[in-house]
Design a protein around this nucleic acid. Structure first.
Length: 791
DNA sequence: TCATCAGGAATTTTT
DNA sequence: TTCCTGATGA
């Protein structure tokens, strides 16, 4: 142990770490809890620890698993790691909970009772799938609102409860469970899984298969979890499968989190997991990262003072060496209009003072508040960007294209079938579809399989549709991903439709963007590539029915995920940027929730009014109020240099004027860190207030502009910017490999005879695309698949 | 099949 | 107010 510590001292990796960070990075291989305050260098600690573990030879790349919540965080970790390590880190098990579960299920698809090319439903797919179940059961959609039923099902899954496990005390719940059961059947039949299912399915697989479980337990020596305070019950249980508490196996589970930044209880996050972890794993080492490298003193004082009012905390206090900085500016506005106007003035003054607009963030509690601010910004010509619009892969035209692509892989995907069967229109109406659904239900088959049962014109049109899908599938055999998508866009009629549509130009651009995204994906992921730099056996566990993570081949046949399936998976797991017009120097507008994890030089927290922030729905119970306070804590700690907070006497909400009292949070901030810009205790309706508002409203032609501002700026154009792909990462293409030749026949022990379409890669990485006719076109890893040339 | 209208609901959200 | 859904009529 000492030698390790000695080696540590000399490693350049560990330079410039503070004592707590150093302790976290070099913590012994045992369960540990890192309480990482806002701006305390958490990501740096996580990545440095991984690099240090590898550098000191304590673990091999295949023995590390690091889990995050968002793709962004995972990417950040990978990027930083790749600068610290001499090999390609892509193949390491670093990703989001859902991403890793996907990887795991792809490897063990048979054990998981899933088709190899299973598809993933995003939130809206899930809702429409639930809706179909409710319709099929002839239930009242008023009583069983699809979205809410979806939440119920997700909630059950997050508690690891299958329909048979749910205890129903009332009729409503019993029905809900029935829907849940039918929904499960439907998903299974269609070969699709929702997000919660990804987690639950892989949890159950580990729970029910000791051999697999033990394999992974032996493999992963170091497991690191980011944002541990956001884990739900199932995610914690999932982690325990990989590293059971008290096993004495020498595994290290390192949980990094901040209980004060737990703001997702409403979607199932359990802060309590932190305390449970500490207890169940008998954690000896709790390391607090309290040194803050982000904000000035006044800002931290405010954050510390506020959060100290919470009763349920593990306890920590942020400190800085940066000095006090400016006090927090406080502004009371007569109305939400006036508040927006004040923001404009402040922003203009900050910008004049040399601050980039993108370093200024306006935060609010709920999305509805952005409207007034947006129109004020619009009218004064200040560029701005709103977070939280539609993401790239969620756009209607993109989803349509993806649905066609999914149908090529799996025609039994009824969700996709219904999405595009009559788009563009093909004379298939609601009545025909109703008949089709009845027929399918009666025989327990998919819609695609039931089209022949429909008589008349509707039936003929349906057959024409399935013929279209089938012929496109044949047509695209052996094509590259790019060519497949181009072909699908053409034959589906989507391109034609948007070309003639009066405002289809933007949608056409997005479809173009989809092709680019696919192209970038193929290059970047180095599709089919094994984890570069990792020994094969570390990546591909040699379990009987196992393939391995990512695109590593199935152990039996050597088959690997086709680029199309991989891309479709990518599209549902990563919906793309949800921020419009990245890159422009624009003021950033977002909810406090979406600001988590970000930082800005100047931050405005707006709408600090009782009922809004803290929100009225959260104030009824103690826990709710504490979460609102944590939300405020998150908001405050986003600011590096300048923080301003404001509230309004009156606010237009749901078409009605509301009279507000300032938020209780004002009383929970240290008076000495506040600088009031307006006189205190000014009552609403004062002469000043009324005049200010009237004058301002008279002075601007606001009403007509609101819509224009939104349409132009709210995520209509996707920010889909892929970094350029270095030439070194592009695929080597060869014509010949061990007697195999492109265009010639090959024989596979399981799939029989086929035609070789493509050869890629070298050595252990070499792979081939073969058209096996009846068995379809498959990608095979030549290191596993036994292919022999035939004449 | 599509456009229009009425009615109801309106924290927070990643995967 | 504004957005979304579902029903209705051409």
């Amino acid at each position: 142990m000492n030698s390790v510590a000695d080696a540590a001292q000399h490693s350049p990796l560990l330079k410039n770490l503070n004592p707590e960070q150093l302790a976290a990075v070099t913590a012994a291989a045992e369960p540990a809890l890192i309480l990482a305050g806002a701006g305390s260098g958490k990501t740096r600690v996580l990545t440095t620890r991984i690099a240090w573990l590898l550098q000191t030879g304590q673990v091999s790349p295949g023995g590390v698993m690091a889990v995050t919540f968002t793709n962004k965080a995972a990417k950040e970790m990978l990027t930083r790691l790749s600068t610290m390590l001499p090999f390609n880190v892509r193949g390491m098990w670093i990703g989001t909970f859902h991403g890793l579960c996907n990887r795991f299920l792809r490897a063990h698809w048979k054990l998981a009772h899933l088709p190899q090319a299973f598809q993933i439903l995003d939130a809206s797919d899930t809702t429409s799938a639930v809706k179909r179940v409710i319709k099929a059961m002839n239930l009242d959609e008023e009583r069983f609102v699809p979205k809410q039923v979806g939440w119920f099902i997700a909630g059950c899954k997050e508690d690891a409860q299958r329909p048979g496990d749910v205890v129903a005390h009332d009729e409503q719940t019993r029905k809900l469970v029935e829907i849940y059961a039918n929904y499960e059947d439907q998903c299974q039949r269609e070969g699709v899984v929702d997000f919660a299912e990804l987690m639950l399915r892989s949890y159950e697989l580990l729970r029910d298969n000791p051999a697999v479980r033990e394999h992974y337990q032996a493999r992963f020596r170091h497991i690191l979890v980011d944002e541990f305070q956001d884990t739900n019950k199932l995610q914690y249980a999932w982690l325990k499968m990989f590293a059971p508490p008290g096993s004495g196996s020498g595994q290290s589970l390192l949980a990094v989190g901040d209980d004060d930044q737990s703001i997702y209880a409403f979607r199932g996050a359990r802060v309590g997991n932190m305390a449970d972890f500490e207890r169940e794993y008998r954690v000896k080492k709790v390391i607090k990262l309290e040194q803050n490298y982000r904000s000035f003193g006044h800002i931290l004082d405010a954050a510390n003072e506020l959060i100290s009012r919470n009763t349920q905390r593990l306890g920590k206090t942020l400190r800085t060496d940066a000095g006090q900085g400016d006090p927090i500016r406080v502004h009371e506005a007569p109305s939400d209009f006036a508040e927006a106007q004040w923001l404009i003035e402040e922003i203009q003054s900050l910008h004049r003072g040399g601050l980039d607009r993108q370093e200024i963030a306006i935060l609010y509690r709920s999305n509805a508040q952005s409207r007034v601010i947006e129109s004020a910004l619009f009218n004064s010509g200040i560029p701005y960007r709103v977070y939280g619009g539609l993401r790239f892969f969620e756009r209607a035209e993109v989803k349509h294209a993806l649905a066609y692509l999914r149908l090529l892989e799996n025609p039994n995907d009824d969700t996709s079938f219904l999405r595009v069967v009559n788009f563009p229109t093909r004379g298939i109406g609601a009545k025909t579809l109703e008949n089709l659904q009845d027929a399918a239900k009666a025989t327990g088959r998919s819609l695609y399989q039931s089209v022949s049962a429909i008589p008349g014109k509707g039936g003929a049109n349906l057959v024409a549709f399935t013929n279209l899908i089938d012929s496109t599938r044949n047509l695209t055999q052996g094509m590259t991903l790019r060519e497949i998508i181009e072909q699908v866009l053409e034959t589906s009629g989507l391109l034609e439709f948007y070309r003639t549509d009066k405002d289809g130009a933007e949608r056409l651009e997005n479809l173009d963007e989809l092709i680019n995204a696919a192209e970038a994906f193929v290059m970047q992921e180095g599709f089919g590539k094994n984890a570069v730099g990792l020994p094969v056996d570390e990546v591909a566990p040699t379990l009987t029915a196992a393939g391995a993570p990512g695109a590593v081949p199935d152990a039996e046949t050597g088959e690997i995920m086709s680029p199309l399936v991989a891309f479709l998976t990518h599209a549902s797991l990563e919906a793309g940027d949800n921020q419009a017009q990245a890159g422009q120097d624009a003021v950033q507008l977002m909810t406090v929730h979406s600001a988590k994890g970000l930082e800005f030089d100047a931050v405005f927290i707006t709408g600090l009014e009782e009922g809004l922030f803290p929100h009225e729905n959260a104030m009824s119970d103690h826990d709710g109020l504490e979460e609102e306070r944590r939300l405020m804590y998150v908001a405050i700690t986003r600011a590096r240099k300048k923080l301003s907070i404001s509230f309004c006497q009156t606010r237009m909400l749901h078409g009605q004027t509301r009279y507000n009292v300032k938020s209780r949070f004002f009383d929970e901030l240290p008076e000495t860190s506040l600088k009031w810009l307006t006189p205190r205790n000014q009552g609403f309706g004062s002469g000043f207030a009324r005049e200010y508002q009237q004058a301002w409203e008279r002075g601007s032609g606001l009403k007509g502009m609101v819509g224009a501002g939104r349409v132009a700026d709210r995520g209509q154009r996707a920010a889909w910017v892929e970094p350029p792909v270095p030439a070194s990462m592009k695929q080597k293409v060869s014509e010949e490999h061990g007697g195999l030749r492109v265009g010639k026949g090959v024989f596979h022990t399981k799939f029989g005879e086929g035609v070789l379409l493509t050869l890629e890669g070298t050595g252990a990485d070499a792979r081939a695309q073969v058209n096996f006719g009846r068995h379809g076109t498959k990608w095979l890893a030549l290191s596993v698949a036994k292919l022999t040339p035939i004449d």
